[in-house]
Amino acid sequence: MVDRIAHQILEKTSGAADTILLGVPTRGVPLAHRLAARIHAFEGVAVPVGALDVTLYRDDLRLRGARALGRTELPPGGVDGRRVILIDDVLFSGRTVRAALDALGDLGRPRSVQLAVLVDRGHRELPIRADYVGKNIPTALAEKVRVSLTETDGADEVRLLGGAA
């Protein structure tokens, strides 16, 4: 799936010039690094990679409580005037992406922002859509989609959990 997204990005951005990938912690970060590696393998282009933690921009802090922050690390040169592609594992309500757009706005002014996700499971609560999708997985609202990555979880896997409850 990562290969396909990498190809789509190269295609849609005409060679990924002036583009940076920002992974949303936790699993968006290793995904961003994998994508960059693929893009490099296919076209020899080195796409800068960074991380964008959105915890402090979330709108559900009151409901879910404070938690540990992830790292925010921008590649040298920052985001100003560049094409930023946000990378996350699962697209669901769209609230994380909304928070990421707000966070990005406080860091600078990108030329454009795109979104790449490994899984789109539907049930959007905001007018947000992904530019690149690894796989669409129709789900019930009560189900959970769990993405595991070798870097963070020891194995690559996508699992659909629960539902009955």
């Binding site: 402090l56 921009y57 802090l61 707000d102 706005g105 406080d106 860091l107 600078g108």
Partner: peptide, 8 residues
């Protein structure tokens, strides 16, 4: 950062 404020 340029914007030294968070909405948290």
């Amino acid at each position: 950062r340029e914007v030294k404020k968070l909405p948290t």
